[in-house]
Amino acid sequence: MVQIGLGLLSGVVVGFSLGIVGGGGSVLAVPLLLYFVGIGSTHLAIGTSAVAVTVNAAVNLVSHARAGNVKWRCATVFALAGVIGALGGSTLGKITDGQQLLVLFALAMMAISVIMLRRRSKVGDPNVRLDRQNLPFLLGIGAGTGFLAGFFGIGGGFLIVPGLMMATGMPIINAVGSSLVAVTLFGLTTAGNYAVSGLVDWTLSGVFVAGGFVGGLLGTAAARRLAKQRGALNIVFAAVVFAVAVYVMIRALHLL
């Protein structure tokens, strides 16, 4: 029962992160399952979080869509290209040492946080649409992001948000909402791959989903408020990513 309670609380945190920055699902869920809930296996934590994050991302997508934050055509092209990459990445990730995955995971997140912090002064074009100019970038960056998301066993929001902004120049609030299309599909691909190998704790996944629903509603509301202040959402995004990266790196290197 204690583990179930900790899983529920972790789900609230994960749902809030997905709602406010469009990412942090598995980035937060994996270390929470390993070090807070005490699941014990890196690959089991990855598979379990992938299932929960997929469902929570879909719920948060509905909230952002209602707020008009989703650029559906750009998001769909990006997501479909990423699914192919995610399938290959998750296959490679399953045969890679768990501790090595966590270290690479942390380094990738640190790089992302620096990039997003440097872009905080850029507003972006809220009227961006799918066209011949951004199509190749959406396909290429989408496939690459999907591969990394699958390899690290994450929904990929922390990679997808900056990827969408680089490919199209859309504002971060639109990238956050649109990223959830890809997070849902990437997570579904990764979750399916791990489930086939029996690397999913279905009870904990269900608990995460329940907590994530509540957290997601709170996160989406906070994202709308922060988006009205120039650069504020970028700073929050970068800070969350970097903090989690440092923690994961410390635990992976057994410094705590």
Rank of each mutant, 00 (worst) to 15 (best):
A65M: 09
L164D: 03
L188W: 07
G40S: 07
L188I: 07
G7F: 00
F237Y: 09
G144T: 03
L185R: 10
G142E: 02
A29E: 07
F158Y: 13
T91R: 15
W72D: 03
F152G: 11
G93F: 00
L138M: 12
A227M: 03
T54Q: 09
T189Y: 08
T203S: 07
A57K: 04
Y194Q: 00
R119D: 14
F151H: 08
G23M: 03
G146E: 04
V13M: 14
V21I: 13
G219S: 12
Q133L: 00
I20M: 13
L217Y: 01
L226D: 15
I172T: 09
A222M: 12
M109W: 04
V200K: 02
S63N: 08
G215N: 02
M109Q: 15
A252K: 13
G124C: 04
G198A: 06
A182P: 08
G153L: 13
S41T: 00
V14I: 11
V181M: 04
V246H: 13
A111F: 05
L217H: 11
G40A: 04
S205K: 08
N127A: 08
I4E: 03
V77F: 03
S26H: 09
R132F: 00
G163T: 04
N234E: 12
L233T: 01
L6S: 06
K122C: 03
A243V: 12
A149I: 02
A232L: 08
R66E: 02
R118N: 13
L164Q: 01
G7S: 07
G24T: 06
I4S: 05
T42D: 14
K94A: 03
L199A: 11
Y247A: 13
K122N: 08
T42H: 15
A149K: 10
K122Y: 01
L159H: 11
A58K: 11
A143S: 10
S205M: 05
A238W: 03
N127G: 05
V14M: 13
V103W: 13
F16D: 03
K122S: 12
V30R: 09
I154T: 09
G140D: 11
V196L: 07
G98R: 07
I4H: 04
I160W: 01
L255P: 12
V53H: 00
F105M: 14
N60L: 02
S41H: 10
R129D: 05
S17I: 01
L226C: 14
G216M: 06
A195P: 14
